[in-house]
Each structure stands twice: as C-alpha cells, then as structure tokens.
C-alpha cells in the first residue's frame, strides 16, 4: 500500500484505510459527522487562504469573499460524501468555491469589477485592492475584469492558484479538453481586452495632454 500524501493531512483517512466516499457508504448511507467535522476542519486549515484569495480575485470584495468562503466550506461539509478520493479534496473544494462565486455573480449581477483602476472609477480601494495594484497594472486588472467570468476563473485557477489540468477541469466542472479550450480562449480574450484597455488609456492620456499643449501653443 502506498501512503497517500494527502491522506497524511486528513485525519482518519489513512488510519481507516478508506476514502471519504467509501466511508460514507459504509455507514448505511449515513455519513460519520465526527469524521466530517474533522475533515472539514483540516481542509479549512489547509486551504482556506487560497479559497478566500480566489474568491477575492473573482469578486473583488473582500468582505463578500469572506462570506462566500464560509459558504463554500459549509457546502463542502454538507456535500462531504460526494468527495470520492482524499487526493481530490483541493480540486473538489475549488469546484465548490467556483460554483459559489458564479452563483453570487449571477445573483447579484456584479459588474463591480470595473472600478479597479482606483483613479476615476469607484470608491476608495480596499486593502487587497491596494496590494493587488502593486502586482497587477491597472489596465491588466481592468482587462481581467472585462473577460467572461468563466474565462477569468480558468486563468486565475490555472495561473495564480496553480491547479493542474485535471484539477482545473474538476474545478470548472468540465472535461479536460474543454478546460484547456477555455483557457486558450481566456488568454486570447485577455490579450484583446488588455490591448483595448491600453488603447483607451493612451487615448485618455492624449486627450489630457492635448489641451495643455494647445494652451502652450497659444502662449
């Protein structure tokens, strides 16, 4: 028997030599709440930071992201028996978080991604926003916000959260081929959106400087 490295951090799995799915089935259809508690607690300890970060990046609202992180873990607890293998726990958790994010976006029709530039649109930036700004240019942030949310999710999960191809497919709830195709489309969408943002920015810059030049010429 080969030790499962993931099992090493999920109390109960290796000890009992069972996966979550098999454990659920073994209790006459009723899953073990103690194990579920321990499992979610450990899962939270290990992954809550990255799930929270993903939700912040998707929704751009830290407080909302915190609420949704909580929702995601409660859903994970409720759907504990659907996790078949302990080693898939991370992708499974992302899948739940991804659905939570999309549901929220649809529900609230959040188009509040655009006030990322911090200069002319929206209110004062959050702490995360400020930190994010230091790492992503304003036009990149706005470009990222412009692309469809599933494409944005694919890019974030693959590039920022380092999901493998298989994990990405699981998190997005699509086939491996579809996930790769989505990622390819996302790259092109981002490229075009970024070009559009840069063009708009150049145009705005030109408009700003034009009056002053004209004033100088008058002098």
């Amino acid at each position: 028997m080969v030790a499962d490295p993931t099992a090493a951090v999920l109390p109960g799995y290796a000890e009992r030599g069972r996966t979550p799915g098999s454990r659920a089935a073994s209790v006459s259809g009723m899953w073990d709440h103690e194990e579920a508690d321990a499992f979610i607690e450990t899962l939270f300890a290990k992954h809550h930071n990255e799930i929270y970060a993903y939700l912040v990046r998707m929704l751009r609202e830290p407080e909302l992201a915190a609420d949704l992180t909580q929702d995601a873990f409660v859903k994970a607890y409720k759907n504990y028996e659907t996790l078949e293998k302990a080693e898939n726990a991370r992708a499974w958790l992302y899948q739940i978080a991804h659905r939570v994010a999309l549901d929220e976006i649809r529900r609230r029709k959040i188009i509040r991604f655009f006030p990322w530039s911090g200069e002319s649109r929206g209110a004062s930036p959050s702490a995360e926003h400020v930190v994010m700004d230091a790492h992503l240019s304003g036009d990149m942030q706005r470009a990222l916000a412009r692309i469809p949310e599933r494409q944005r999710a694919a890019l974030l999960l693959a590039e920022v959260h380092d999901l493998t191809g298989v994990e990405l497919a699981a998190a997005l709830g699509v086939s491996h081929v579809a996930a790769r195709a989505l990622l390819t489309r996302a790259r092109e969408s981002l490229r075009q959106a970024l070009a559009a943002e840069q063009a708009a920015e150049a145009e705005a810059e030109a408009a700003k400087t034009a009056p002053s030049r004209s004033a100088e010429n008058h002098r």
């Binding site: 930190v131 240019s137 790259r187």
Partner: peptide, 18 residues
C-alpha cells in the same frame, strides 16, 4: 500571452489574509 501569464503568476507572491 507569455507576458500576461507572468503578470498573473506574479500574484503568487502576495498573501491575502482572510
């Protein structure tokens, strides 16, 4: 594509504290 990718991967380097 490569530049965008590296920009996104740059986000690895900071932590968001919940």
């Amino acid at each position: 594509y490569e530049a965008d990718r590296m920009a996104l991967r740059g986000l690895h380097e900071f932590e968001m504290a919940p």
